[in-house]
Each structure stands twice: as structure tokens, then as C-alpha cells.
Design a binder for these strands. Sequence first.
DNA 1: AATATGACGATGC
DNA 2: TGCATCGCCATAT
Length: 107
Amino acid sequence: MANEGFFEKVYQVAKLIPYGRVTSYGAIANYLGASGSARMVGWAMNGSIKKEVPAHRVVNRNGLLTGKHHFQGTNLMQQLLESEGIQVVDNKIQNFEKYFWDPMKEL
DNA sequence: AATATGACGATGC
DNA sequence: TGCATCGCCATAT
């Protein structure tokens, strides 16, 4: 209920991430107008796992799956990304710029 | 009310 | 090029 307004926004944007695409926490934060609070986006994702939010499509600006530890399995996040056609090596997305999806730019 | 933490980001060295 | 430090801002305790 209106208590997690910030979180809600993050969830909405994360849900809008197209299939086979990824984005960064900072990009979402920037889109929400909270540029600088990229950490909040990550924190919001913490609860997004319980939701229907594809948090596996959200990584840090290095394209590194930093939050994979928060997923159920050890490499579930990586598997999900690979399932979408994204190459992941050593917890890092290959051709990150190519798969990068900027909410501000796309929306 | 204050302090510590955190799935980040940028800059400095 | 890689590691270390500071800054940001909301949540949790």
C-alpha cells in the first residue's frame, strides 16, 4: 500500500524490461529521477524476488551479476539470462552494451 | 532519533 | 589496469 512507492516504481520498470535485454540499477534509478540512489534500486530488488519482477535482467553497470547470490540457486540468475539468449561468463554478461536496455532512452 | 547496512556508481591512486 | 575510498539515499534495527 503506498508505503513502498519507491519500490513500486522500481518493480514497474523492471517488469518493462523486454525479453533478452538487461539494464543496470543506475539506469533505473536515473529513470525514476533518483539518480544516485542506485543502491535503493538494488535494495528494492530484494523484495522484487517475491514479486513477478525479472530481477535477473537487472545487473550492475559492469554487467556483472552481483545479485545472483540473492536468487534461489547458485547460478539461477545466469541460467535465466542464458535462456534468453544472453551470454554469461563468470557471472558477467557478454556484449553488455549490446543487450543494455535504457528505460529513459526506450521509454 | 541515530547508526549501520546495502543486488551501486564514480573517482582517485 | 586493478584496487581502494567516498558519495547517495532509503530501509532496517
